[in-house]
Design a binder for these strands. Structure first.
Ligand SMILES: [Mn+2]
Ligand SMILES: [Mn+2]
Ligand SMILES: [Zn+2]
Ligand SMILES: [Zn+2]
Lengths: 151, 151
DNA sequence: TATCACATTAGATATAATCTAAATCCTTCA
DNA sequence: TGAAGGATTTAGATTATATCTAATGTGATA
């Protein structure tokens, strides 16, 4: 059962399972769309219980620190979050900015000469291009496509 | 000569070579440290001519649009910028957050089945771990290391 | 029940980025 | 030359995002 597994992973991470904290984890587990903190705040408050903005931010910070959630590196202003269920890479659309999950595969590590004294923990891959929704319009210039969307 | 090459690349990108715009490109070319907009603003104003904050942001936006500069995807709040001189990957330090350049090498593309109808433009690699400066302290817990730094 | 650490909250504050509208600078073309 | 008009710059206001503060609430346990 999903509820029980969230409860367990919170406790494994040394965090109490509060309604607000549970709601953030549940939302991220159900929505693999890499929502922003504002979207998560809105999402968890569509249903009860109410959670304040500060609590949403606090819990996201704690969940990241506990390793249950990761912040996805992406340009744009607002941080995006991702429940750490399975290893995967990301595809970021040049046109609409959507961040999509991509199947995991191992990446060749850099030559140890180029790594120097650095200690490598992980290699993350970010693919860029046009997503399925945006690819059909790729014939037209990017600017033209943007203009169409704005209109 | 570097000055001349900056001038030429600006014009090739369809941008006038103004003193403020030139200063941003020159700063980014000299400082491969992926500075934030605020750092660039401060940096270009250490020498003359003065450039306003709005102009620094405007020029960074225009330079990115022209493909001469890229915004580096990194967690943290402020966007970081990088003159597009040579292809390279990035190493981000878990402890101090520094973004360092890493030698370029080709990355195996995802299986076309997992790509679907998406159109792939590039594969970017982000390495994470401890940088040369932070690696020696890695024995102690991350939190402990942070406390030392703060104190 | 009393205690105490952990959590939540509203609202204030800080930080990063963008917008606005006016002024200035360039290029072009009589 | 010297208007005309587009591109650029500017200070300051505004918006967007994130964090802080200090008061309050909650629940496990002695
Ligand atoms: Mn993801
Ligand atoms: Mn770089
Ligand atoms: Zn898209
Ligand atoms: Zn470091």
């Amino acid at each position: 059962m999903v509820a029980e597994s969230i409860r367990r992973s919170l406790e494994a991470g040394g965090l109490r399972c509060t309604p607000q904290r549970y709601a953030v984890m549940a939302f991220l587990t159900e929505h693999a769309r890499h929502p922003t903190a504002a979207e998560i705040f809105e999402g968890v408050n569509l249903v009860d219980p109410r959670s304040s903005r500060a609590t949403t931010y606090n819990n996201l910070r704690d969940l990241v620190k506990a390793g249950l959630v990761r912040e996805v590196a992406v340009e744009g202003r607002a941080a995006r979050f991702d429940a750490k269920i399975m290893r995967h890479h990301h595809f970021i659309c040049d046109r609409c900015g959507n961040v999509e999950d991509m199947e995991w595969y191992d990446v060749p590590r850099p030559a140890s000469g180029s790594l120097g004294k650095r200690v490598l923990r992980e290699c993350e891959l970010i693919f860029r291009g046009f997503c399925t929704k945006c690819a059909p319009r790729r014939a037209s210039r990017l600017d033209a496509a943007r203009r169409v969307d704005a209109g």
